[in-house]
Amino acid sequence: MLSLAAVSAGYGSFRALFDVSLDVEAGEAVGVIGPNGAGKTTMMRVISGLVPMDAGAMTFDGRSLDGLSAHRIVERGIAHVPENRRLFPRLTVEDNLRIGAFIPQARAKIAERMAWVYDLFPRLKERREQLAGTLSGGEQQMCAIGRALMSGPKLLLMDEPSAGLAPLVVQQVFDLVRRIRAEGLTVLIVEQNVQQVLEVVDRAYLLEVGRIHLAGSSAELKNNDLIRRSYMGL
């Protein structure tokens, strides 16, 4: 469904990604793990058009994504839950969700989608009139995911959804990911919480200093020595 072929990208003269190749099939959940500064966020931003690609090719559903601006990529069916959630803090929860449905095909279905999101996250419905900046960390993550779902995506990109949350809430967030999969969405998720993420994804990639170092099914990676030592502290 999504395919990156030898993608390189960076910021100005600084290169953050080197020849990254990665595939996500429809219905899969794929993880990307790696230490801080590895380029995980950069990769997600390249996919959603926030950072231009220097070399390589990207396709989605068989069509090229090269050179598309961010809003066009959303229209193709990719939604991005950004690192640190990035809600609009001075808009209400409901307005945040509404903005998520900006593209024309989503705007027509706002009511229906909103009901779906509230169904998935009843907590958001309770907080609908509250300013997003005043939500708790876990609720903010729900709101950010809900906002991304409002565009009606086929593929959901999630950048460290569990970062900065209390252990109990982390558990809830991974439950959310499972529920989203159950809704039939394809998920590409970046995490530092390796142990947990390997429980919810089918496959994962290890990204280090801008390069893919390892790829495999969750089961393989869970038993890989390098991963166990460096990322699971075992």
């Binding site: 959603s48 058009g49 926030l50 601006s69 961010a70 809003h71 959303v74 229209e75 939604a79 991005h80 950004p82 990035r86 903005i99 998520g100 900006f102 593209i103 989503a106 906002r147 991304a148 565009s151």
Partner: peptide, 9 residues
């Protein structure tokens, strides 16, 4: 910046 991710031009 994040507005682009909302599909906003």
């Amino acid at each position: 910046e994040i507005m682009g991710l909302m599909g906003v031009d």
